[in-house]
Write a protein that binds this DNA or RNA. Sequence first.
DNA 1: CTGAAAGCGCTAACAG
DNA 2: CTGTTAGCGCTTTCAG
Lengths: 346, 346
Amino acid sequence: MAKRKTPPIGSIPTMHDVAKLAGVSQSTVSRVLNQSVTLVPISEETRQKILNAIRELGYQPNMIARSLRTQRSQMIAVMIGDISNAFYHPIVRAVQDVARAYDYDVLISNSDHIYENEVRFLETVLRRPVDGIIMAPHRLTTEDLDKFITRSQIPIVALGAQVQHPAVDVVGGTSEPATYDAVMWLIQERGHRRVGFIGTLDEMPPGPARYRGYQRAMETSGLVIEHDFAHHGDFTLEGGKLAMQNFLKQENPPSAIFVANSPMAIGAILAAQAAGCTVPGDFSIMGFDDIPEATIIHPTLTTVTRDLPNIGRQVAEILFERIDGRAEGQGRFFQSGWKLTIRESA
Amino acid sequence: MAKRKTPPIGSIPTMHDVAKLAGVSQSTVSRVLNQSVTLVPISEETRQKILNAIRELGYQPNMIARSLRTQRSQMIAVMIGDISNAFYHPIVRAVQDVARAYDYDVLISNSDHIYENEVRFLETVLRRPVDGIIMAPHRLTTEDLDKFITRSQIPIVALGAQVQHPAVDVVGGTSEPATYDAVMWLIQERGHRRVGFIGTLDEMPPGPARYRGYQRAMETSGLVIEHDFAHHGDFTLEGGKLAMQNFLKQENPPSAIFVANSPMAIGAILAAQAAGCTVPGDFSIMGFDDIPEATIIHPTLTTVTRDLPNIGRQVAEILFERIDGRAEGQGRFFQSGWKLTIRESA
DNA sequence: CTGAAAGCGCTAACAG
DNA sequence: CTGTTAGCGCTTTCAG
């Protein structure tokens, strides 16, 4: 009696099937597939027999079984804040490219900046162990992260310096200094004295860091932040509109507004124009991150520009350094660069 | 001698650890976790002991081991054409929401419309068996798909009617009729006699279907498609600019242009304006799919509008019907609805 | 009501 | 150079 039935048509062949067809043992098949790992040589003859059998059956190794055995999943997880925000697109694309080069698959998750979703993401990667994590946490506390890290040991790279944990690598730290630069430029190059701010005023990153950069630039320049100079915005285009509408109601609004991200900056321009104001005539407006919409809007948007594809590559390479054991110990910090892209809106 | 060492700090607990702590066998733990499956009742006392142990250890079942055993991965894969194209965002978001409700994870992959990437995606889901696939194939041949399907048995739902396979469910079929409607509107409501077209003229979907809709509307109206009325565009904003530049060079260009997707339509508007032309004054321009950029551009873009979140939900629900065995047999076809969103550009 | 045992497909010692 | 064997963590008969 056969040990194993002929596999039903359409069922996926296993290593066993390959071994049977090639007339060798299953472990020999495994060896030729992982030749790099084993130092043991294999006779060219059996190698060919096995390779032929593999081709004939169209065999593909089952990653699930392999993962269970090796305790590696060949998969990394990425949590982004908002799939609609073009800021993330070049980053995701770059991460996928790097992962592909390392022969890894990518599990993408979208948090929509909601705390429950961020926690759920952590639970997911605990149940479905991935080999590494890239995330842009907005709501997660350092405590949540700490609880996760002591349980999981999975390397994490965070996008944005809001996270403070001795074990996680961080790429970011542009918010404060880049905002400072941008606001200084508005003041020194464009001669503004009354500069406003739209961004999160609550704890949600990267709100606070960008606000601090704004504050420092104003102070350095000896300018005061008047009572109504800063309005809250939720980092969406609609949020930018709402915030701008607050400025438009004011008696004596700022002449320039630094907006903490570009979708909001575009919303602000649209709201100003809807109210019959001109940009940059009545308001100079500056955004953060150079997304495609920045050149669709009229006037085109002046922005703080980071090299997003490069950040994506960096973040992924840093993660793979950990995964491959090329880096160990304390979490590292990488500051990414930026420049100002001057267009029409400021 | 202990059968199993105390798990090292930071290592993930297994069902075995839970069983030991609760003083029961591992299979009993499995039973309380899958209570719905088993019909066997479990004494409230052991149930509680086990639940407590689970809580104490913070145990989470290992999905990889479960998958190997059950031959189900609790994961679906989604292949989209272009992560930068806002068309996909509401769809991806809806799919994630539905998947979450079914307790599934989502593996997202970005093909960038490149044949090799699409093939690679198929290989990936063969090695890492997912329970279902949603894809927007652009370059894959029916033959590629057929080869895959006979090998894998994984249910597939395709977005867009370009795919013809007896086993795959399709959601789409709007391209031809919606384009027809849109072009008819340009002719009948706006009085255009000379209507042009930007889209793929090669085989790449959804180019041909939209071109056929355009053709039929022109014929029905007794209008001729002149030699230079249709230009090729690659479905990106830049591609739209290039195509428009061709029209701008012409002696006697069309007065209205139907553009096969909205990023290209925006590129066309930008190119026209850069050349000193006005929209809709010199050219009426109409796009396909209502993306956020449509209301950022000035003039705002008139589009064919599909209910994208609804399409995403539909596509996911159809897939889960297959996965759960609620649907069987022949691939089904679902036509999604559309309407015209009239704005300023046409 | 609960435990023992088999086995999903694979890798990695350990023997030859 | 190659085969045998023991699990990875889990579900699911099969016995009690």
